[in-house]
């Protein structure tokens, strides 16, 4: 029996482990993929206090070393369900059952997909969810970005420095992004806006070579080597949503102390319903959730 099981080894989950372990609790972190979470895709973090520049990989690795040296156990197994029993909680993976007095959910979010035909087929062959990761493969090519928020605009601006022409496709006529980004976008000559338009079809054989755009009831084809999809994130709530309260967007509802609707189950990081999803708020959640979990166990 563990004191606390943390699901997800991103910045929120690992910070929760740090605080729980320092409170002398027996802690297990379960991670489906690899430690770090989405932050490892960030090439340069510039807004974490004291770190003028640090790569997401270095940040995650430092935090990983910090907690494993303290004795936190991290196991690479995907959780398939959790159960709230009378005296303890159960966490089930494909091959094992783990027991704990408290659970902290820190599974984060995943990229939202367009959900159109051939999207999966062209991943890595034209379809990408990360311009800073894959942009350099498309030097001097024509590329498309779809989306209308901060991420989409940042990606279009980033790609405009590398690529020939960047088409920014958005289903509305206005962006819901920071004004500073909109101003920057409008000042760049090789970004072409395709507004009030949705993507209808992805074309190509071995790799993506064009996309069909539906706008004003008519279809246009844009020939392009890549489509960067930046239409938001989806909370990874599948294994919890039957017992944990979620909001209309799928994020886990909690009070200001990270308590979910079930006593002894806490939430931290991007999957938590909140207004700002940043590294600093993820680590903050982790500290808070762990402290509350420790209080719950000591009761």
């Amino acid at each position: 029996m563990y004191d606390i099981i943390i699901i997800g080894a991103g910045p929120a989950g690992m910070t929760a482990a740090l605080y729980a372990k320092r409170a002398n609790k027996k802690v297990l972190v379960l991670e489906a993929l690899n430690y770090g979470g989405q932050i490892i895709n960030t090439v340069d973090i510039e807004n974490y206090p004291t770190q003028e520049h640090i790569s997401g990989y270095d940040f995650a690795t430092k935090l990983y070393n910090q907690i494993t040296e303290l004795g936190v156990e991290i196991i690479e197994e995907k959780v398939i369900s959790i159960e709230n029993l009378k005296d303890y909680k159960k966490v089930n993976t494909k091959n094992n059952i783990y027991k704990a007095k408290a659970i902290i959910i820190a599974t984060g979010t995943d990229n939202r997909k367009l959900n159109i035909e051939n999207e999966d087929k062209f991943i890595g062959k034209g379809i990408s969810y990360c311009a800073t990761c894959d942009g350099s493969f498309y030097k001097n090519k024509n590329v498309c970005v779809v989306g209308g928020g901060n991420t989409a605009l940042e990606e279009a601006i980033y790609l405009s420095n590398i690529c020939n022409t960047v088409y920014l496709i958005h289903r509305r006529d206005k962006f819901r992004a920071d004004q500073i980004l909109i101003d920057k976008l409008n000042s760049i000559s090789n970004i072409k806006l395709v507004l009030n338009a949705t993507i209808n079809k992805l074309n190509g054989n071995e790799k993506l070579d064009s996309i069909d755009i539906l706008s004003n009831n008519k279809i246009d084809t844009i020939s392009t080597d890549a489509l960067f999809i930046a239409i938001g994130k989806i909370p990874m709530n599948d294994i919890f949503k039957d017992i944990i309260e979620i909001d209309e967007y799928g994020y886990i509802v909690s009070d200001k102390l990270c308590h979910t609707n079930i006593p002894g189950i806490f939430v931290a990081g991007d999957i938590r319903e909140k207004s700002l999803r940043q590294l600093v708020t993820a680590t903050s959640d982790g500290a808070l959730a762990a402290t509350e979990a420790v209080k719950y166990i000591n009761q």
Binding site: I123, K125, F137, K207
Partner: peptide
């Protein structure tokens, strides 16, 4: 090898590609 996204793992047997995976995956 038509690599447009990394990490990209390609399995080659007798000089020919037989499988590939794009993106981060677990050890298993």
């Amino acid at each position: 090898y038509n690599v447009f996204s990394i990490p990209c793992l390609v399995v080659v047997k007798d000089g020919k590609e037989i499988k590939r995976n794009v993106g981060l995956i677990s050890k298993n």
